[in-house]
């Protein structure tokens, strides 16, 4: 393993995947997993403005993502409750507008010309381009200077993971109750339920930002949904969903690496990492219920 090349890819991919799993596990039980597809596109304008203000490493990038997703999710909820447009219509109306605004912002800020971020990276990810030059050996990881020069997408994914994991652990009882029966939670503990909804939005924003910067928006939906759908068939609690889904995502990353190495050696073709990962995630999501049935855990499908 070449540390400066493989470590950032694995760290970024795994961090983005786990963040997406946490977000996906909050969306799937509400029947809103398709919001993740929309959110991973809709986050773009906030990210671009964050980039323009702070460059590759700034906290403004994550803040921009959070503000944009809060606006997007708020807009979807408002349209759903006030206008009753029809199932999914409000999502289909809003996310292209947000994504379009992001593309316009990208053009207006001129970021594409600086090489910081471009349309290809947004769509298909930039995993193959991640290099952590200062991380030549394991001992380099102990030096603060090495982390100061860490690739931006990796840091976005790591910070996103740290924040969302902390929030999920601290707020587990509230999130669990809110997901189990949102109406009841809203009725008897309205403030806690509202806080849980705000945390959900925050976690979706962090995941969308991490996915966009690592695997790209086109396969983000597979990261959000695949491992959680797979875990659903095997888990009995929300904790178990998270743990099993992380296992599934790790397995998918390993299999992706295996296929990439094999095809490069045998066919002399290097398939796009994010594409292979998406395929593995879907395959595992389909296979997990079969495994659950074989092992006698006959849980309902999500």
């Amino acid at each position: 393993m070449l540390l400066s090349q493989d470590l950032p890819i694995i760290l970024t991919l795994l961090s983005a995947a786990v963040t997406a799993i946490l977000a996906g596990s909050l969306l799937l039980p509400r029947g809103q997993i398709m919001i993740s597809e929309a959110a991973s596109h809709a986050v773009l304008p906030g990210l671009i403005i964050g980039f323009a203000l702070s460059g590759d490493h700034g906290w403004q990038v994550l803040l921009g993502a959070i503000v944009t997703i809060a606006l997007f999710v708020g807009g979807v909820s408002w349209l759903r409750t006030r206008h009753r447009l029809g199932p999914g219509v409000e999502i289909a109306a809003l996310f292209p507008v947000f994504f379009g605004l992001g593309i316009l912002a990208l053009s207006l800020t001129g970021l594409e010309k600086t090489g910081t971020i471009d349309v290809d990276h947004i769509l298909f990810g930039s995993l193959e381009l991640l290099f952590w030059f200062d991380a030549g050996t394991w001992s380099d990881l102990l030096r603060p200077a090495t982390w100061a020069s860490a690739p931006g997408p990796m840091m976005t994914a790591l910070v996103g993971l740290a924040l969302s994991l902390s929030l999920c652990v601290i707020a587990y009882p509230f999130l669990n109750r809110s997901l189990m029966d949102a109406h009841h939670a809203g009725l008897i503990t309205p403030v806690a339920a509202a806080v849980a909804r705000a945390l959900e939005t925050l976690i979706v924003a962090l995941a969308a930002a991490a996915c966009l910067r690592s695997a790209g928006v086109v396969v983000a939906i597979a990261l959000f949904s695949g491992p959680v759908i797979a875990a659903w068939s095997l888990a009995r609690t929300l904790w178990q969903v998270w743990l099993i889904a992380i296992g599934v995502a790790s397995l998918a990353v390993v299999l992706t690496y295996g296929v990439s190495l094999a095809t490069a050696a045998v066919l002399d073709v290097e398939p796009r990492i994010s594409g292979v990962l998406a395929l593995w995630l879907v395959v595992l999501a389909v296979l997990a219920p079969v495994l659950a049935q074989l092992t006698g855990r006959n849980r309902p499908l999500p």
Binding site: M34, E270, V276
Partner: peptide, 27 residues
Amino acid sequence: SRGYSAGAAQAMAIGLAYGLTLVLMSL
């Protein structure tokens, strides 16, 4: 038909479509 919800089925289908697209593109 297997019992997945509409959202889960659509999410997996998009993942599949894009995954295939990117892999086929590489080929």
